[in-house]
Design a protein around this nucleic acid. Structure first.
Lengths: 339, 339
DNA sequence: TAGGGTTCTGTAACCGGTTTCGAAACCGGT
DNA sequence: ACCGGTTTCGAAACCGGTTACAGAACCCTA
């Protein structure tokens, strides 16, 4: 039966004023209105249960109070933790958040970006991008630039090029893992890296190599794989084939580490007795796994919150805020000769 | 430098037609347009890189292609799994999804609902509601009804009252757990229930009691607690105090089960040797825990997807689709005398 | 008391689309 | 050549707000 919504005009009529005055008092405009009229308008609005139409506002004001967060997959703990941070920061300034799930599909990502631009959302935060790395000049970058040219704010959470960025110190984290494993006496190492071309992957790897250099340990076996449990498991097969004597594995995220541990068990290797495994991100439950996972804590929620603030504050394109990572040593790593 | 967006009027001018015709060809209207003009308009739109402004469309059409999903917390695996399903279903019909995080705050939930109503989103899906149960007549229900009266679609994923619902067979799941524990010989049981008043909590508990009835086993100790790890851990203290001889615990979700296992370990009880623990939901990683968690699988993603379809298809308010649950027996439960 | 400056309010244009309605063009049939 | 019926198209109204602009009312000063 489609009841009609009450509009600003209804309120104005009920209060006996013009739409303009009603808008002024309701819309929080800078213009002043006499106390009496203000009172009348507010009462009328309350009586009629008036709620402004955000589309009309967005159209008139040419901006909507929406913020978009682009992720690969909300169900991935990495992204859902970032999302949590973004939501918290958004609540502070009374803004709504729209999460866009690309499922790592570049086309979908692009489609979202176009929609968001059209939607004139106030800010878009890119937590993960489907194209590898998103170089300047890519379609994604072009779309983002267009968006910015039209007044939108952008912040990214991947090693950025030209956008304000809030990123974890991936390189430092990688180094911490390297040092940890070295200290435990490991020399035959391997790393299960994320998809090649992704910025954080290169950084984590570089940090790890930084630590190894000069230690006399041989180069690690490096296998690129998906950021999933399955990816981690499959990588183990390759590693075992390439270097059967591997005693320590550094997986680029916790999910891969879990998969690796499972596959190692299936292959008859005990963790950490036969081979140590370290992850990255310190996802929830990492400490409840079998065995508890040694990993690197990344302040993902703060990262998301900060990204939003940077975007809203209009941080300059070359500003990058680095977030410290900390190694969390747990049961999945042990001294090489320790049994 | 704020470049102006290209509007429909620009396209129309470039194509030498009126706004009306341009709208007709671009907006997928039913009205027919000659092939020649259609061609001209399409070319102009492509040349100018035209993207329609969804706010203007929403304003004119009185509906926006947005779908909202209300959850307590995206970072909770229960909800992120539902979200994943919703995203998939939304992608099928080319719709965008807005996730609203209430953090279990009733005021925030209400605020979201009002905004969504104003926003004229096409559908709102309620996966979790902050008020206990959301009875008919509550503020939330009032807001939802208002929304529906204005043409919005609603579907819920909690035991509903008057809304189309896609819900798991919580009662059946509870019964499965009860039967499982009984079959293992347990008689001194306890249940860590979710917050009292929540529909699914009552159902899971009722199912569990269904199984116990007639078995001769004494009534379980029931402790209500938060759906968190912490909640599960704290509940263990109460249970141990109330019935020290407890040999099996049914936690209403996996997170609580994890917390319970940890606290039991701290109290010197081994799982499953001394006490068996079963969870609910079969969250990702449940099988990788220490020990692997016996739990009940709930098809959350399908549930979310189905809820969206029901809403969009305008399912009647009394329609409830029940999703089968299946018990997944793993290492956290064992025969009562089995050591 | 006239003149100038504030302060408040209303009119109307505008944001960028969609859609109603009527005019114009075209059709085949007498 | 004339006519009723379709089809195609454009002018203009509308969706529901915001805001530039101008007028009215008020104040204070000379």
């Amino acid at each position: 039966m489609q009841t009609r919504r009450t509009t600003l005009a209804d309120v104005a009529r009920a209060a006996g004023v013009s739409k303009a005055t009603a808008s002024r008092v309701l819309g929080g405009s800078a213009d002043r209105v006499s106390d009496e009229l203000r009172e009348r308008v507010l009462r009328a609005a309350a009586d009629l249960d008036y709620v402004p139409n955000p589309h009309a506002q967005a159209l008139a004001r040419a901006v909507s109070p929406l913020v978009a967060l682009i992720v690969h997959d909300v169900a991935d703990p990495y992204f859902s933790e970032i999302a949590r941070g973004v939501f918290h920061a958004a609540a502070e300034s009374d803004r709504l958040v729209m999460i866009c799930n690309t499922f790592r599909d570049p086309d979908r990502e692009l489609a979202y970006l176009r929609t968001l631009r059209a939607q004139r959302v106030q800010a878009v935060l890119v937590a993960g991008t489907a194209r590898s790395g998103f170089e300047l000049g890519s379609e994604v970058a072009a779309e983002l630039d267009l968006y910015r040219a039209e007044g939108g704010q952008v912040a990214v959470m991947v090693a950025g090029h030209g956008y304000p960025a809030a990123v974890p110190d991936d390189r430092g984290g990688g180094r911490q893992v390297g040092e940890h494993l070295l200290a435990l006496g490991h020399r035959q190492t391997a790393v299960i890296a994320g998809p090649s071309g992704v910025g954080s992957v290169d950084e984590r790897l570089a940090g790890f190599l930084d630590a190894l250099v000069g230690s006399g340990a041989p180069e690690p076996v490096v296998v690129h794989s998906d950021f999933t449990r399955r990816g981690g498991a499959d990588a183990v097969d390759e590693i075992l084939a390439a270097r059967p004597g591997t005693t320590a594995i550094f997986a680029h995220n916790d999910l891969m580490a879990v998969g690796a541990i499972r596959r190692l068990a299936a292959a008859g290797r005990r963790v950490p007795d036969d081979v140590s495994v370290a992850g990255f991100d310190d996802m929830p439950l990492a400490e409840d796994l079998q065995p508890p996972l040694t990993t690197v804590r990344v302040p993902l929620a703060e990262l998301g919150a900060e990204a939003l603030r940077m975007a809203l504050d209009g941080a300059p394109g070359d500003e990058t805020r680095l977030f410290e990572t900390t190694l969390v040593a747990r049961g999945s790593t042990a001294p090489v000769d320790g049994r």
